[in-house]
């Protein structure tokens, strides 16, 4: 056996296909696919189904690329946090350099292919999204300010706007409202998670609001953002993408979201600790349902209108 065969026979740190796939944060990608698809479908311009499918695929790939770049940069704190310790880089299955290379190449491929498949406005928005998530959020805001997920949440809010741009080649009030829906939803969603995962962020030195300002203030901020989100979400019902189906869903979902936030704010920390943050976990789960149901209602509304059943 030569030295060369000894070297390639080394198994330590060798990732399997699934480990590289995990670098792309598949669960986040599924949300990106869904919101981008809604953005494409509710737009007033129809797109060839194959181009729509391929565009959504590359928007998701761009999201995955930013996930890989995030895992490359954050591998030091991912090792400390229980929630992230099993990710491919901190667990030693994939080297940080590999995550960086994969992230950069996938960024290039996804932006280029989206530009070629649809248009360069959509590609430009995707490039900005990757930059925003990888550089502005991951490298800059996350470890610096408790407003990290407020501003960083913009990265997750871009996909429906990119989807809209795939169809229309531009940005409009409706796509800005789709953006706002995800943008304003992000803080209550992540802060509800931070309420019961606080130790993770404390140990890793990430200045989440729960760490810097305490849980009482975090509960108040969740309520404030839920209240600010409601008029934007309901307001979308009165634009070209809205209608009575979406309005009914938005009224119900936002009333429940705000009421849940109010109840969280009124909750004493001792009560939360006593029942192991049951209400906070339930609110976190409902926040996922909220977003999924809101976008589903928009989709249903668009199907209804396109089937000739009438709009406003």
């Amino acid at each position: 056996m030569t030295d060369a065969t000894q070297n390639i026979g080394t198994t330590a740190g060798e990732g399997q296909f699934g480990d590289y796939w995990a670098l792309l944060k598949p669960r986040v990608m599924s949300l990106v696919v869904f919101t981008a698809a809604v953005g494409v479908f509710v737009a007033p311009v129809s797109v060839h189904p194959f181009i729509a499918m391929v565009s959504i695929l590359f928007i998701a790939l761009g999201g995955g690329a930013s996930g890989a770049l995030n895992m490359w940069y954050d591998h030091d704190i991912d090792t400390i946090m229980k929630r992230t310790a099993n990710r491919p880089v901190p667990s030693g299955k994939v080297a940080p350099g590999e995550a960086l290379t994969l992230g950069l190449w996938l960024s290039f491929i996804s932006v280029t292919m989206l530009g070629l498949a649809s248009n360069w406005v959509a590609a430009g928005l995707l490039a900005f999204t990757i930059f925003f998530y990888a550089v502005v959020y991951t490298m800059w805001l996350k470890r610096w300010t408790p407003q990290n997920i407020v501003i960083g949440g913009a990265a997750g809010a871009f996909p429906p706007m990119i989807g809209w741009a795939v169809a229309t080649g531009g940005v409009s009030l409706e796509s800005v409202l789709l953006f706002c829906l995800v943008f304003m939803w992000t803080p209550p969603h992540f802060w509800a998670l931070a309420l019961f995962m606080n130790n993770d962020y404390t140990n890793a030195g990430v200045p989440m609001l729960t760490v810097t300002h305490g849980k009482r203030e975090t509960r108040k901020q969740i309520f404030i953002y839920a209240v600010l989100l409601a008029p934007l979400a309901i307001g979308a019902a009165f634009t070209s993408i809205g209608g009575w189906i979406y309005l009914t869903a938005a009224l119900y979902l936002n009333a429940k979201f705000v009421w849940g936030a109010w109840k969280l704010w009124q909750r004493e920390e001792a009560d939360a600790e006593a029942d192991i943050y049951t209400a906070e976990k339930a609110y976190f789960r409902f926040s996922l349902v909220y977003l999924f149901a809101s976008f589903s209602a928009l989709l249903l509304q668009a199907v209804w209108v396109k089937a000739g059943m009438g709009a406003w």
């Binding site: 065969t5 390639i8 198994t11 060798e14 990732g15 296909f17 590289y20």
Partner: peptide
Amino acid sequence: HELHKRRFGRNLG
């Protein structure tokens, strides 16, 4: 080679 077996899944993907 043993390497081929180990990396089969990755290469196939």
